[in-house]
Design a protein around this nucleic acid. Structure first.
Lengths: 155, 155
DNA sequence: TAAATACCGACTGAATTACTGGGTTATAAC
DNA sequence: GTTATAACCCAGTAATTCAGTCGGTATTTA
């Protein structure tokens, strides 16, 4: 798994789309403005997202982008994989022709971990993120807290 | 959170160290040979790991590296953070002076997700990985399966 | 017809990756 | 003590990726 700033941009843009796309299509210009990402870079990202059917573009005036499926059907892993490309983790590519036994054991361990990370991100959908935040916001509104939530940083 | 190939190299090297360091110190030359990582690059990685007390170097002939603490006390997040540096996720840096409300909401969502990923990786230790693999190997030996485990890839 | 938008591709500076090569210490073995 | 072995340190660097600019074309609405 690869989790770079590029993936972050893509997730951020998709979140923006999920949040603002309820009423109609969202233009890349709007997302660019909202999130501080250059328009042309967004175009590159959305070309990748579109090829994986995660978004759907509508041309012409009043056009823009819709989510390609419902927010609940789009996982974070989907988004990251779309823009970051799925790289081969181990150099031996699954073939057990590594020099030593230690090498391939390590590679297997890493491969298992990568799969776990992937599954973790595959279990979180765009819809989840949006709902979780709304719930959280209600709780905060109840207590009328002014203190930011940065105190909950752990480990 | 940032999960790049650099972090992968570091985790791989630490795994190698955990596996082979039972009897004595492991040299970078050995890890380089085992894992196919250049010696000087390993030196860079281990300089970072050492500064975080994740490894302990012993100079001179017969020297090499030990784990800085027990494998159970070293999390994957520790390793990745040591070499990849902890980058600021949001551009607004926590300050709520973003242009629009949508921007900061998206940033909050991304920030929460990042924290979750971090906590996930902070919960997995080197020791966990090694033990899990040993368990798995026993299971495989029981069924004498030839089929690789790549069929469990999900979406 | 004109404007707005997605769509497309080539190019580019900056950063990062992964590596090379030149050292200098510390220490164990001889 | 000398020497070999290792960690340690630092400067440079080709290749790649990141994030962006620029200049277009295609489609659709007004």
């Amino acid at each position: 798994m690869r989790l770079s700033t590029k993936g972050r941009y893509a997730v951020t843009a998709m979140l923006d789309l999920a949040l603002n796309g309820k009423t109609g299509p969202v233009t890349l210009a709007e997302i660019s403005e909202n999130q501080g990402i250059s328009l042309s870079y967004l175009e590159q990202l959305f070309a990748a997202l579109r090829s994986k059917d995660l978004v759907r573009g509508v041309r012409g005036p009043g056009g823009g982008y819709y989510l390609g499926k419902s927010a609940d059907e789009i996982s974070i892993a989907n988004i990251i994989c779309a823009v970051d490309e799925w790289v081969e983790f181990t150099r031996c590519g699954g073939r057990q022709n590594c020099s030593g036994g230690a090498r391939c054991l390590t590679h297997t361990l890493w491969d298992d971990l990568s799969t776990e990370i992937f599954n973790f991100l595959a279990d979180i959908s765009l819809g989840d993120l949006v709902r979780r935040n709304l719930n959280k916001k209600e709780e905060e509104d109840d207590s009328l807290s002014i203190v930011p939530q940065s105190s909950s940083q752990a480990a």
